[in-house]
């Protein structure tokens, strides 16, 4: 299960998507480490960075979309869905620009999509060997969203805030019209549930970020909890376009 070499079971066109905001120090090595393992096209969505993220991504060999203003993670990833649909990709794998997602696990995410057994595959840091260690506060947040998501979907997801996932074209088409703008991960579970999307989790490895600061501060963490819970509940009853 190394790469998408011609001949491997049903060949699909895969786009690896990395949303990036001010990650000029990490983005190059992340792009290169993916290119060393796979032949998939890599798309970096430069979300209005004030540093040279776009240039660094291009140098490392990624296709780069430069958003003229900062849209937030959801708007940036949605642009990638629009790009993938316009250019005929069958699947998208999304991972973070800070190197916390293990690129070698991309193929694990794609397997269920190739088999056609799932429409969305979410990488969980808590399945399998589970080497990931989180702080108490982060763990509390994750547990809270786990309960919320599992309560409303009736499924057993272990890692509802995971930003390491793969989706097929069917779901991309929906998401390119409607996708939460700020913190899309938790919200997307309720959308998938309502769209009757077949979602599965597979074990992946996640690490602490390599360089630079995480965007999480206590105030933002509280805002995140409130905002995500609210929009999750609104998406439960809201209109789907």
């Amino acid at each position: 299960m190394q790469s998408s070499t011609p001949g491997s079971s049903p060949d699909i066109r895969v786009l690896v998507v990395i949303p990036a905001y001010c990650e000029e120090r990490n983005i190059g090595s992340v792009v290169r480490s993916i290119r060393n393992l796979f032949h998939h096209d890599i798309l970096v969505v430069n979300d209005g960075s004030t540093d040279n993220t776009g240039e660094a991504a291009r140098k490392a060999g990624a296709i780069t979309l430069d958003l003229p203003c900062n849209l937030g993670i959801g708007g940036a990833v949605q642009t990638a869905y629009m790009y993938a649909i316009a250019h005929g990709y069958d699947a998208i794998v999304r991972l973070d620009a800070d190197g916390q997602h293990e690129p070698a696990d991309i193929e694990r995410l794609l397997e269920p999509l190739r088999d056609g057994t799932a429409d969305a595959v979410i990488g969980s840091r808590f399945l399998g060997e589970a080497t990931y260690r989180a702080s108490f506060f982060r763990m509390t947040g994750i547990r809270f969203f786990r309960v919320l998501v599992n309560l409303f979907t009736g499924c057993k997801f272990t890692d509802p805030t995971s930003g390491f996932f793969a989706i097929n074209r069917h779901l991309m088409q929906f998401y390119s019209a409607q996708y939460p703008s700020d913190y899309p991960e938790v919200d997307s579970y309720i959308l998938m549930h309502r769209l009757k999307i077949r979602a599965v989790e597979v074990p992946v490895r996640m690490y602490e970020r390599e360089k630079g600061k995480s965007s999480i501060t206590p105030i933002r963490a509280i805002y995140y909890m409130v905002k995500v819970t609210l929009s999750f509940l609104i998406n439960r009853i809201g209109r789907i376009e």
Partner: peptide
């Protein structure tokens, strides 16, 4: 505004 920003980025690429 979001749609415009996205379309501009796609057009530029």
């Amino acid at each position: 505004n979001k749609r415009l920003i996205q379309e501009i980025a796609l057009l530029k690429s």
